[in-house]
């Protein structure tokens, strides 16, 4: 489930969107689907990091159960029949993206990640041309204290990729989450300004895994913040070396 960590040599067969596929036993539905070119949308999942299961975009239908299952957290079993697309799933996924857009202040036109943002790409992919939920417009701060990086809470979707990469890959655990519910927010150490953090190694991994413009390099202008995507495939390898 964690990057196929539990996968064994034994293989099983299952059906995803009417495609009969075989995969190694122990893979999650999400991993099996991606291995076979079926892209289930996600925002919090990232290969090499532990499972979080928070964005709920990867919900799929499995025949035989009225419930929905998060593909990232569901292990494949022999003979499973999975549907990753349905009008209901599409409606829910759209609502989730709309909820994220309405939760904080996501203004693409002035965002450094405009054009390179996973949330924006997800909204385009799911056809979110407008948000039919009321916007919250919360007053949120920007932590501009660090020499190289910037944390803009207005653009954060709380996927906690930064928290996990910091704790699990870099081993610093500088970042964590404070508060709960709608008040939750990313913090550094004991909710200090980033520059005052004693643990941050300024490695920049958090910036590169952030799906939106919440974590960026300082000094970038609108649309200039391109995350180093070639960094991502190495995450898993780094994690294994780290262990």
């Amino acid at each position: 489930m964690n990057g196929g960590k539990h996968a064994t040599a034994e293989s099983i067969t299952l059906t995803i969107d009417q495609n009969a596929i075989s995969c190694r036993n122990g893979l999650s539905v999400l991993e099996a689907a991606r291995e076979h070119g079926i892209d289930i949308p996600t925002l919090c999942w990232l290969e090499g990091l532990t499972l979080w299961g928070g964005c709920r975009l990867c919900m799929v239908e499995i025949e035989g159960s009225p419930r929905l299952f998060a593909a990232c957290a569901t292990q494949c079993t022999e003979g499973m029949v999975i549907h990753t697309q349905s009008p209901r799933l599409h409606r829910y996924r759209r609502t989730i993206v709309e909820m994220l857009l309405a939760e904080r202040n996501h203004v693409c036109s002035v965002c450094v990640s405009n054009g390179h943002c996973e949330l924006q790409a997800m909204a385009q992919r799911l056809g979110v041309d407008h948000v039919h939920l009321p916007y919250r417009f919360p007053r949120l701060s920007v932590d501009n204290s660090h020499d190289f990086f910037r944390l803009d809470h207005n653009r954060c979707i709380l996927c906690t990729r930064c928290v996990r990469v910091c704790a699990e890959i870099e081993g610093a655990h500088t970042k964590d989450v404070k508060g709960r519910g709608i008040q939750a927010a990313i913090i550094h150490d004991l909710d200090q300004p980033w520059v005052e953090s004693q643990t941050c190694t300024s490695c920049g991994k958090c910036v590169n895994v952030c799906p939106t413009g919440a974590l960026t390099h300082r000094g970038t202008a609108i649309g200039e913040m391109i995350k180093k995507h070639e960094f991502l495939p190495y995450l898993k390898l780094m994690r294994e070396v780290h262990q």
Binding site: C55, M99, L100
Partner: peptide, 12 residues
């Protein structure tokens, strides 16, 4: 505040 539907949905 972990999952989006509960965090934002309950607010909405």
């Amino acid at each position: 505040g972990k999952c989006v539907p509960c965090r934002v949905g309950t607010w909405q």
